[in-house]
């Protein structure tokens, strides 16, 4: 049996009509409860005793309009640091992952290095690595340009993130089924060729969503380099704050980060969902 559908395409089956009703109902409930929460926030927050002061110092439209272009410009430096760090992280992460996979006893030091490396750099907060590398190494009295915080800040980010990326790659390598190795061996391929042509191409593809998440985190952590000198967006916002005695530039900076990270996160989620679907 079907329900008549007032000339809107083919008539719905009973099940479809029921599900459409259910969907309308839950959409209405969701809209109403969201509206209630928004109204509550809009009405209640301004009732806080110092709301006027906070509004002036964090959500000041004039300050926002004056500082936003400068922030955007400073953000280009974040993008640049990200752009040259990312490939280095990818490369070093892959090398470390492969080091941890070597079986030959002569190469055991490499393996040990890989293990120690990932332990150390995953175990120390990024900001500490940035301080130690960013202040420590130029402190050796290196001549220009080798004392640049851009170089050593980048090195600090690369060292830290390569450890995480290496672990992701290793998970990917281990997730490739043993039968793929067996097939490659049965054809007479060497271990190196098996890794290069059979295992790695599949492993790298499989961990794209996981790596995307790491690179989104990296995009935000670039701001930490401001602590050792580069005038990127966070530091630029700080400059404006001191200049105008107003915190709105920080809100502007946050919005700029969100404009990048939210779409990137959604894209990573989409890739992951597609992969899950493909594997089932």
């Amino acid at each position: 049996m079907t329900f008549r559908n007032e000339g809107r395409g083919p008539a719905l089956t009973r099940r479809q009509a029921y599900e459409a009703r259910l969907r309308r109902r839950s959409n209405t409930i969701a809209a109403l409860s969201t509206l209630a929460v928004v109204v509550a926030i809009v009405l209640l927050v301004p009732l806080a005793p110092r709301w006027e002061a906070v509004k002036k110092s964090f959500f000041n439209w004039d300050v926002f309009a004056r500082t936003f272009p400068g922030l955007l410009e400073a953000f280009l430096l974040d993008v640049a640091i990200f752009a040259w760090s990312a490939p280095l992280i990818f490369g070093l992460g892959l090398v470390i992952a492969l080091m941890r996979d070597v079986r030959s006893p002569a190469l055991y030091p490499l393996r040990l290095f890989g293990i120690v490396y990932t332990d150390v750099f995953r175990g120390v907060p990024v900001i500490l690595v940035i301080y130690l590398v960013g202040f420590g190494i130029p402190g050796l009295g290196l001549p220009r340009p080798w004392n640049s915080p851009y170089i050593w800040g980048t090195v600090a980010l690369v060292l830290t993130y390569a450890a995480y990326v290496a672990e992701v790659f290793r998970t990917g390598i281990e997730s490739i089924h043993q039968s793929q190795r067996a097939a490659a061996s049965s054809l007479g391929l060497s271990e190196g060729d098996t890794m290069r042509y059979v295992i790695l191409p599949q492993a790298i593809r499989r961990v794209v969503p996981a790596n995307m998440n790491l690179f989104i985190a990296l995009q935000k952590d670039v701001a930490l380099l401001s602590f050792i000198g580069p005038v990127e967006i966070f530091r630029q916002a700080g400059v404006y704050k001191s200049l105008l005695a107003n915190f709105t530039p920080y809100v502007g900076a946050a919005l700029i980060f969100l404009a990048i990270t939210i779409p990137a996160t959604r894209y990573a989620d989409y890739l992951l969902a597609r992969q899950m679907k493909a594997r089932n």
């Binding site: 039968s179 793929q180 067996a182 097939a183 490659a184 061996s185 049965s186 054809l187 007479g188 042509y197």
Partner: peptide
């Protein structure tokens, strides 16, 4: 084992194509 495996082909139950 590689030179031996070159002389002996193997096909698996689950195909194991790349």
């Amino acid at each position: 084992p590689a030179p031996v495996r070159r002389r002996i082909g193997m096909v698996f139950q689950s195909y194991n194509l790349f």
